[in-house]
Design a protein around this nucleic acid. Structure first.
Length: 393
DNA sequence: GGTGACGGCGCG
DNA sequence: AAAGCGCGCCGTCACC
C-alpha cells in the first residue's frame, strides 16, 4: 500500500532553485535534461578542458559516448568537481529529477483506489531466467541513496500485516564457489565468515583482523567483478588503483582461488564448443557462434555473457524454486507474496503468526537447493519497506 | 501524433 | 577500436 508520504514532499520548488542556480553559472538558459546541450555548456565554460596533446599525466581525457558525443554521465562529472560549483548542482538536479519523474509521480498515478500498486511480472522477459517487472517496475525502487530510501517508506504493509524481506546473502558468489569446487572459498562460506574480508585477507596475505576497510572494499569489488567478467581498466577505475596494481590484483586473486579461474575458463570453452551455457539446474542459454566468428570483441562479450548466464541463471532458478516451495508449504492467506527482487522475496505476514512464519520461510529458502556451500538468508521485518530492521533469530 | 535510438540511471 | 552481467523507464532528438 502507498501511504501519504509523498504528498507533502515538496521537491518541485527545490528543483526550480537548482535550475536557476545552474542557469546563473552557465550564463544562459538551456535544457539540463539534454546531455548534448549540457555537454556544450560545459565545454563553453571551459570545464571540459580541451586538453592539449602534451599532457603526460593521462588525466582529463574526455570520455566520448559511442556516437562520438561528450559523455556527461555521473562518473565523468564527478571528476570535474572543484572546477565549478555547477557540477554538484547538476548532479543534485539529476538525482531529484530522476526520483520525482521516474518514481514518485508515475507511481502515484498507478495507485489504485485500494491504494495498492500492482506490477506485472514477466516470466519470459530475460535471457538469464530472471523475472522482470513492469508498469511500474518495482524491482528498481530506490534504496541506495538517503533520499531514495525515503521513497521506499511510502510502501506500507496492509493493516494487521508486517513486511518480511528475505534476502539470499551473496548467493552468486556462493554458486560460483560451489560450482568451481574451490576448496578455500567453500570452507570460508561453511564457516560463515565475512567473505569479502576473507578474500581481502587472502589477497593481502594478512590475518582477517588486520584487513582494513579499504582492503575489504577492493576485495568486494573484485568478488562481484569476477562474476561479470570485469576488465582491468574497470577494476582500476572503480577501486582507485592504477593499471599495474589492478593487473597484479587480478593475478593475485586467481592465484589465491585457482579453481575459480579454471571454472570460468571451463564455461568459456564449453560455450564455444557447444553454443550454449547451462545453469547448475540444466537450463540453457544459447549463443550464435557463427555471428561472433573471427571477431575478438564479440567473442569476449559472449564469454562474459556465458559466465554470467551460469551464475545469474542458477541464482534465478533457485529463487524460483523457493517461491514455489513457500507457496506450496505455507498458508498464502496469512503469508502473502508481495514481490520478488531477484535474490530477495518480500512477503506480507499476518501479525499473529510472524514469529513462527519467519523461521519457516527462511528454512524453506535455505534448504530448497543443495550446493557444496550453505545458502544463507538474511531477514528484515517492519511496517514500512524503507525502514525494515534486521530480524534476529 | 507516434516510433525508435540514445544517453543516462534506478535496482539486483 | 570496442572490454561489467541482467533488467525498465525517463526525456531528448530525429524522423515519419
Amino acid at each position: 500500500m502507498i501511504g501519504n508520504f509523498w504528498k507533502n514532499l515538496k521537491k518541485k520548488p527545490k528543483l526550480g532553485e537548482l535550475q536557476d542556480k545552474i542557469f546563473k553559472f552557465a550564463g544562459r538558459d538551456f535544457n539540463i535534461n539534454s546531455p548534448a546541450q549540457l555537454g556544450n555548456i560545459l565545454v563553453a565554460m571551459g570545464i571540459f578542458s580541451a586538453e592539449g596533446g602534451s599532457a603526460s599525466g593521462g588525466e582529463g581525457k574526455i570520455k566520448k559516448t559511442k556516437t562520438g558525443k561528450i559523455s556527461t554521465k555521473e562518473n565523468e562529472l564527478v571528476k570535474l568537481r572543484g572546477k565549478s560549483p555547477i557540477i554538484d548542482l547538476i548532479l543534485e538536479f539529476r538525482e531529484l529529477n530522476k526520483l520525482l519523474n521516474t518514481y514518485i509521480n508515475p507511481i502515484l498515478k498507478l495507485s489504485f483506489k485500494d491504494e495498492k500498486i500492482h506490477t506485472t511480472l514477466k516470466q519470459t522477459g530475460t535471457v538469464t531466467g530472471r523475472l522482470s517487472s513492469e508498469e511500474p517496475n518495482l524491482q528498481n525502487i530506490p534504496i541506495r541513496s538517503d533520499f531514495g530510501a525515503r521513497i521506499r517508506d511510502a510502501f506500507i504493509a496492509s493493516p494487521g500485516f508486517t513486511f518480511a524481506a528475505f534476502d539470499y546473502s551473496q548467493i552468486e558468489l556462493r554458486i560460483l564457489a560451489a560450482a568451481a569446487k574451490d576448496a578455500k572459498m567453500i570452507e570460508a562460506f561453511k564457516k560463515g565468515v565475512d567473505i569479502h574480508k576473507f578474500t581481502a585477507a587472502n589477497l593481502n596475505n594478512l590475518p582477517m583482523d588486520q584487513v582494513t576497510d579499504k582492503m575489504r572494499s577492493r576485495a568486494k569489488t573484485i568478488n562481484f567483478g569476477i562474476v561479470y567478467g570485469m576488465g582491468v581498466r574497470q577494476l582500476a577505475q572503480s577501486t582507485g588503483m592504477n593499471l599495474t596494481e589492478a593487473q597484479k590484483f587480478y593475478h593475485e586473486y586467481f592465484n589465491d582461488f585457482p579453481e575459480i579461474k579454471k571454472y570460468i575458463e571451463h564455461i568459456k570453452n564449453e560455450t564455444k564448443k557447444t553454443g550454449y551455457a547451462e545453469t547448475l539446474l540444466g537450463r540453457k542459454r544459447f549463443f550464435d557462434l557463427e555471428a561472433i566468428r573471427g571477431n575478438g570483441f564479440l567473442e569476449s562479450q559472449m564469454e562474459r555473457m556465458a559466465v554470467n548466464a551460469v551464475i545469474q541463471g542458477t541464482d534465478a532458478d533457485i529463487v524460483k524454486l523457493a517461491m514455489v516451495a513457500v507457496h506450496k508449504e505455507l498458508d498464502s492467506r496469512k503469508i502473502r507474496p508481495i514481490l520478488q527482487v531477484h535474490d530477495e522475496l518480500l512477503y506480507e505476514v499476518a501479525d499473529d503468526i510472524i514469529k513462527e512464519a519467519v523461521p519457516r520461510i527462511r528454512f524453506i529458502m535455505e534448504s530448497v537447493y543443495k550446493l557444496a556451500v550453505p545458502l544463507s538468508v538474511d531477514v528484515k521485518i517492519g511496517k514500512r519497506w524503507g525502514s525494515l530492521v534486521k530480524y534476529i533469530k
